[in-house]
């Protein structure tokens, strides 16, 4: 039996162009042995979910620094629910005020990683929390 590699979609929702964090975390995931797909900039929640479906990913990691996380991140989880793809682990990172984190978690974003978090912590989190797929 071959063990399937963890597949992660690193996504940039909205109009934000700050992709340093997204690219750094994508490389850290790759170095950790994950299969990584990076969407590039200016993704809508619809396009992110479509890519996630097409690429059959285990995890969606969204990076946002423009302040529109409360609008766009929950929309992704809502769409996943509609498509019955809730087994995908959804995490977020970026400049996100701590008071917004409970709201995001309530909306189904499993964890939020703020500036200064070591990438190794994100890697561990994903390893421990993705749902095993057959």
């Amino acid at each position: 039996m071959t063990i399937r590699k963890i597949r992660v979609l690193v996504a940039k929702p909205g109009l934000d162009g700050h992709d340093r964090g997204a690219k750094v975390i994508a490389q850290a995931f790759r170095d950790a042995g994950f299969e990584v797909i990076y969407t590039g900039l200016r993704q809508t929640p619809e396009s992110i979910v479509a890519t996630a479906e097409q690429e059959d990913v285990d995890c969606i990691a969204m990076s946002m620094l423009s302040g529109s996380h409360l609008t766009l991140m929950p929309k992704v989880t809502r769409l996943l629910k509609e498509k019955e793809m809730e087994d995908i682990l959804v995490i977020g990172g970026g400049v996100i005020p701590s008071e917004d984190i409970p709201l995001l978690k309530e909306a189904g974003i499993a964890e939020i990683f703020t500036p200064g978090t070591p990438t190794s912590l994100c890697v561990e989190y994903v390893k421990n929390n993705v749902t095993e797929k057959a």
Binding site: S66, S68, L72
Partner: peptide
Amino acid sequence: HPMSEGEVGKV
């Protein structure tokens, strides 16, 4: 514009 959703007046 639909792409502006959530971004108006933010940065």
